[in-house]
Design a protein around this nucleic acid. Structure first.
Lengths: 341, 341
DNA sequence: AATATGAACGCAAACGCTTGCGCAACAACG
DNA sequence: CGTTGTTGCGCAAGCGTTTGCGTTCATATT
């Protein structure tokens, strides 16, 4: 049926061990024999069974990537970049899409990656229990986005600095009533929303602006959520003249809500987002740009490096912080003298 | 080190075979023994090695999913939906991101999925050679988007009908100079751009409008491409008063180009897209909606069904067509009496 | 009471690789 | 010319499961 290593060995007149060594570039086989085996293998269309080889060697040449929502631009982009790095290095990627709490729970209790992967890249921040489960796999671990966890390589950005640049921009334009659409809900135990909120509060305090809880709303990191949140903010007794959304998707939802309310951006309300979504430019959204694909690629590279030099795994894995920058577009301007409405 | 089936067997005082049967719900083991084994296994944190079990059984419980660009909304969304179906059925997904021609070629020549997957879902349309390679795997195959291939289950939409509804909408509004931004370039050997172009031509002919080749431009299915294409169209001696873009991303690029040219939408130029991208609503884009996630889920379900009833694989696999509908928003209107500029 | 029946379980042989070890054959050395 | 290395290769023992078959034992059958 399907051609095995012994078929190749027989056809080449050598033993299976020699075929194995020859095909994987291991020493102990002469150049001529190696070439001949390669030829025979190619002609027979032989590919080693991954199951068998990983069973025998313990190496799987597979990386597990766990992500909350592949469909979202941010995660899709990170995954795209990471996958490219992995596949270029000869690794396959096993994808786990953990959107709902149930699938997430099931993943961490059953741990289907056990004995199936050489490393795991998590695009979501595992809580204590979950990260312990991952550590129990005994393979290199990495995360992008958000908080550090012991045993994890983490690549991320300076959330506070990014938020500060955004909010400060609004302050500098003269805004005093600055709302925030956060993304704190949901089952994601990560520090990002917390950091960003703190930075938001800091900038306000620094500018001598009193914080108004009515100017904060939860947008759940989605367009719809952002729309809801913006609608909520507009219902406040004194609505904001500017809003900082913790993600571009929520900012876009906010834009939609504003349009529905016949409010003009940036004349009536300024909006700044976070991420520099691929479509942020299309809608002219001012935002904090972060290297999304860059983070995925970097995390993947760091993971591969750990795989190459297992000796270095004694020390605490590295943390790298990638640059951010405020991108000014058309959704921010000084407040109108008469305010919204 | 890591706990194996024999560890469980020893701890439970039974043989490895019994453990295997017990844990997989196979008959031949009493309820009490089964329960006890389950308890012991749970307590020991045992998970069967996938490599070993797939080597022994031939089943991998893994589905290969190949996609051109995970980062793009369309593919990300399809993948998201498909993954959910697969994982709910106990299958893992192995992801292959084949953006560049080189990685694509490498994938189809080396076929890393050989002996690694029970089925493959292709989100790109393989050419003759590629589909032959996939068929050689001897597993159920499916594709979404575009042309039928022998041996593949395909779920898609009626591209012609969708395009017709879009272009006809423009015609009905009174437009005569209707441009098209297509997505025909790139290494994707699929019928979609061809079908859509034909439908576009048909509607024009049907309306008695002479086709002007200067009103067609290639947008490469990206935002930037759409922007370039729109700029190109605007440079025509007699620019269009309306454009149909073969994808929302290109339509959004077109919107950006129009804004850069200080043209108003829909006053000066109408735009209609295709897909109903999650952000189409944000920019108010009129578009042809197709069930993107729905197609992914459906394709996944059909694949699983083939896996369940291998007897049915004799007949030609099914083809399903999912519904589309035109969504009217704010980027289309009758042409201005004086035309653009 | 003797036998047939079936359920519950163990044995052992795969599954297709990898890898430590042993054994030739040959080269280089004294 | 005998010794020591080196190189190239084969042997065989795993790796952790699954599964066909055989065995045991309790229960049903005549």
């Amino acid at each position: 049926m399907t051609v095995s290593i012994t078929d190749v060995a027989r056809a080449a007149g050598v033993s299976a061990s020699t075929v194995s060594r020859a095909l994987r570039g291991r020493p102990g086989v002469s150049d001529e024999v190696r070439a001949q085996i390669a030829a025979v293998a190619a002609q027979l269309g032989y590919t080693a069974s991954r199951s068998a080889s990983s069973l025998a060697s313990g190496r799987t040449f597979t990386i597990g990537v766990v992500v909350p929502y592949v469909g979202r631009w941010f995660f899709g982009t990170v995954l795209d970049a990471a996958e490219k790095v992995f596949s270029a290095a000869g690794y396959d990627v096993l994808l786990y899409n953990l959107g709902s709490p149930e699938t997430r729970k099931r993943f961490f209790t059953k741990l289907p990656v056990r004995k199936r992967v050489d490393a795991v890249l998590s695009l979501l921040i595992p809580d204590e229990e979950e990260s312990a489960a991952l550590r129990s796999l005994g393979v290199p671990l990495a995360t992008t986005v958000g908080g550090a966890r012991p045993g994890f390589t983490v690549v991320g950005i300076d959330d506070r600095a990014g938020t500060e640049s955004a909010v400060r921009h609004l302050v500098n334009l003269g805004h005093r009533r600055i709302g925030m659409i956060s993304g704190s809900s949901g089952p994601l135990h990560w520090t990002t929303p917390v950091e960003r909120r703190q930075a938001y509060l800091d900038v306000l305090a620094d500018a001598g602006i009193e914080h108004d809880p009515a100017l904060e709303a939860d947008g759940d990191y989605t367009v719809e959520g952002g729309e809801r949140a913006m609608t909520e903010l507009l219902a406040a007794s004194r609505p904001p003249t500017a809003v900082f959304a913790q993600s571009d998707e929520m900012a876009m939802g906010a834009l939609r809500a504003l349009r529905r309310h016949r409010l003009r951006v940036p004349d009536d309300v300024s909006v700044v987002g976070f991420d520099d979504h691929e479509l942020a430019d299309v809608v002219g959204l001012t935002t904090v740009a972060q290297p999304v694909a860059g983070q995925g690629a970097e995390a993947a590279r760091l993971l591969l490096r750990q795989l190459d030099e297992p000796d270095a795994d004694a020390g605490q894995p590295g943390q790298v912080q990638m640059p951010i920058r405020l991108v000014l577009r058309e959704t921010t301007a000084p407040p109108s003298p008469r305010g919204p409405q």
